[in-house]
Write a protein that binds this DNA or RNA. Sequence first.
DNA 1: GCCAACGTTGGC
DNA 2: GCCAACGTTGGC
Length: 160
Amino acid sequence: MAHWLFKTEPGCFSFDDLKTRPDMTEPWDGVRNFQARNFLRDTIQPGDMVLFYHSNIAAPAVVGLAEIVRSGYPDTTALNPNSEHFDPKATAERPIWYMVDVRYVELLPRAVTLERIKQNPLLTDMPLVKRSRLSIQPVTEAEWRIILTMGGMEERVKGR
DNA sequence: GCCAACGTTGGC
DNA sequence: GCCAACGTTGGC
C-alpha cells in the first residue's frame, strides 16, 4: 500500500465536500499535468491512502485522510465540451487524462500546515516543500507517519 | 494581488 | 529537438 498527497483548492473542492457526498466516494477529475496523470493512470491502487491538502489559501495544510477506492480510469470531463476541464485532444480511444475515485476517511485532529511541514527537517524532501506544483505526489512511509503524528494521530501510526 | 517557479506550446 | 514565450499554480 502506497501513500499520496492530493492537492485541492478548498474553494473548488474541499475535504468537507468529500465528507458530505452521500456515498463518500468521489471521482478525482480534472488533473491536467502529465506527471500527475502518470501516477493516476499507472501507480495509484485501491487501498492506497491519501493526505488531503488544501492549497491556495492563507494557511495551506494537510487537513485529513482519504482512501483510494478505484484505480485510474479515463477522465470523462476531458471529452465534455461543456466542462472547464475539456481537452479537444482527448478522445474515447485515447483519453489522455485519467482519474481515480477517493473516499473520505477522517479529519486530522490538528491540521498540518505547510509552515509546520517546512519547519520539520525530516520533511524537506517532499515535493511540496521543494515548491513543486505537482498536484498528485507520492509520500514515503516515513513522511506519512510523521505527518499523521504531527496531525495528532499518534495512535494510528503506532497501530500500523 | 503579486510574482516566482515551472510545465506546456509552438516557431524555427 | 531546442528554447523563448506563454499560461498556470500556489505561496506569500
